[in-house]
Design a binder for these strands. Structure first.
Lengths: 224, 224
DNA sequence: AGACAGCTTATTGTATACAAACGCCATTCG
DNA sequence: CGAATGGCGTTTGTATACAATAAGCTGTCT
C-alpha cells in the first residue's frame, strides 16, 4: 500500500503493540489521523485492516476500540497457530526444494549463533526464527495458509512471547528446528507436522508460565 | 457496515459469484462505483474486504482483478476448510449446550425434509446446511476460528459445490450430520473431528468429480 | 425523583476534488 | 532496429467538506 496508508497502519499498530493505546480504549479516526500526520482516509483503511487482524474491534455502532485480550483468546490463537503451522510443515515436507532447505538450514545456523554468544542476542534470534518460519511457509506453497498464519502470528501477545524465552527455551527451539529439517530431508510430513505441533505448543506453555508468574508478581505488588 | 458500503460489497460480490465480472478481468473503482450507484469511497472499502477474502487480487501497482481460481487453489481451500471445520467440531463436542444441540438437530431435520420431498428442495437444503454449520461454529466458541472459516467457505467455487450434489450425496450429508450429533451427545471430540474431516473431504471429492466430468465434456465438445 | 423527548455534540459515512503513481505509446538517440 | 526516455491519459491515493447517525445532556412532565 502507498505511503500515507502504510505509515498510518504501522504507526497505529505499533502504538497498540507498545501499549500506548490501551486495550479496551476507544480510538477515534480523527485523533489517530492527527497522531499519524495524515487525513482520516488512510486511517480508515488502516482500521479496517487492523480489524480483520483483530487488533481492533468495533462495537455495534461502528466505534473502534483496541482489542482487549483474554487468556482464552490467547490460547485460542496459539491452538490455531499450532494447527496451521503443523499443516504448513506437512505440506512443506512434501514440496520443499533443495534451495529452500538450504536457506532454512542457514537461518537455523544464524539462530544458533545468536544464542551461543556469551550473551544471547535476542533480536537476532527473533529475526532468524522469523526467516526460518517464513521460508517454511514459502515451501508450503499456499498463499491462503500464509495469510491465515499471519493473522494468528502477528498478535500482540504472540509477538512478545519470544522475548520471554529463557536460555533453555531458546536452545530447545534450535533443536526442534533441527529435527524439523531432518523430517524435511526424509520427506516425512507426519513427522514434520508432529514436531511443529510440539514446537508451537511448547512456545505457548513457555508464555503461559511466564505470564502466570507475571500475574502472581503483579498481584503480590498490589497486595503490598 | 452502513448502507452504501454494504450495498457495494454485496453487489460486487454477487457480480463475481454470478460470473458477471469474469475471473482475471481488471476492475476499476470508478466503473464499480457507477454500477453500484455509490461513490468510490465505499467501493474502495468493499474491494479491500473482498481482497482479504481473496475474491479480488491486486497487482504490484495496486490495480484490482477478479481472482482466477486454479484447481490447486480450490484443493487448498478445501484442505484448510476440512482442517478448520474438524477443529471446530472437536471444540464444539466439548462445549456444546443442550440448546445448541437441539437447534442442530432441528436444522438437520429440516435438511432431511428438504431432500425427502418428491423432488429435493436444494435451496432449502443449502440453507439448513448453512444453519447447521453456523450453530456448530457458535458451539465451538472461537471468534477467530469463525472468521477463518468464513474465509475458506465463502469462496465462489465452494458456494457452488452444494448445487452439484446428486441425491446420494445429499443423503450422505444428512447421515454424516447425524453421526456428528451422536459424537456431540457423547462429548467425543476425536470422533466429531474425524466425522467432520470425512464430511468435508467427501464434499471436495464430489465437487472434483463433477468438475472433471465437466472438463471432459467440454474437451469433447471442443474436439468435435 | 424518574423517565422520556428533544436538542446538542461527537463520531463515523459518503462524495468529490485534487495529487500522485503508473502504464502506454511515441519519439529519439545509439 | 532496438532500447531508453519523456509526455499523456488512466487509475488509484489522499484530503476535505458535508451528511447521517449515535451518544450524551438537559429540561420538562408525570
Amino acid at each position: 500500500m502507498s505511503r500515507a496508508s502504510d505509515r498510518a497502519y504501522n504507526h497505529i499498530r505499533s502504538m497498540i503493540l507498545s501499549g500506548e493505546l490501551q486495550p479496551g480504549s476507544q480510538i477515534r479516526e480523527e485523533a489517530l489521523a492527527e497522531l499519524c500526520g495524515v487525513s482520516r482516509t488512510p486511517v480508515r483503511d488502516s482500521l479496517r485492516r487492523l480489524e480483520t487482524e483483530m487488533f481492533v474491534r468495533r462495537n455495534e455502532s461502528q466505534r473502534s476500540f483496541v482489542t482487549n485480550w483474554s487468556l482464552d483468546d490467547l490460547k485460542d490463537a496459539f491452538e490455531l497457530r499450532a494447527m496451521l503451522e503443523a499443516h504448513a510443515a506437512r505440506r512443506a515436507a512434501l514440496r520443499i526444494t533443495r534451495d529452500q532447505l538450504a536457506r532454512m538450514r542457514d537461518h537455523n545456523g544464524q539462530l544458533k549463533q545468536a544464542i551461543d554468544a556469551s550473551r544471547p542476542d535476542v533480536p537476532r534470534f527473533i529475526d532468524s526464527n522469523r526467516l526460518f518460519h517464513a521460508t517454511l511457509l514459502e515451501a508450503a506453497a499456499s498463499e491462503r495458509l500464509a495469510n491465515m498464519l499471519m493473522q494468528v502470528t502477528e498478535q500482540p501477545v504472540i509477538l512478545r512471547t519470544a522475548r520471554q524465552y529463557d536460555l533453555e527455551n531458546l536452545h530447545r527451539s534450535h533443536h526442534e528446528h533441527d529435527e524439523l529439517l531432518i523430517a524435511f530431508d526424509n520427506r516425512d510430513g507426519d513427522w514434520a507436522a508432529a514436531v511443529m505441533t510440539a514446537h508451537i505448543r511448547r512456545a505457548f506453555h513457555a508464555y503461559a508460565e511466564a505470564h502466570s508468574t507475571d500475574t502472581e508478581i503483579r498481584k503480590a505488588n498490589l497486595a503490598a
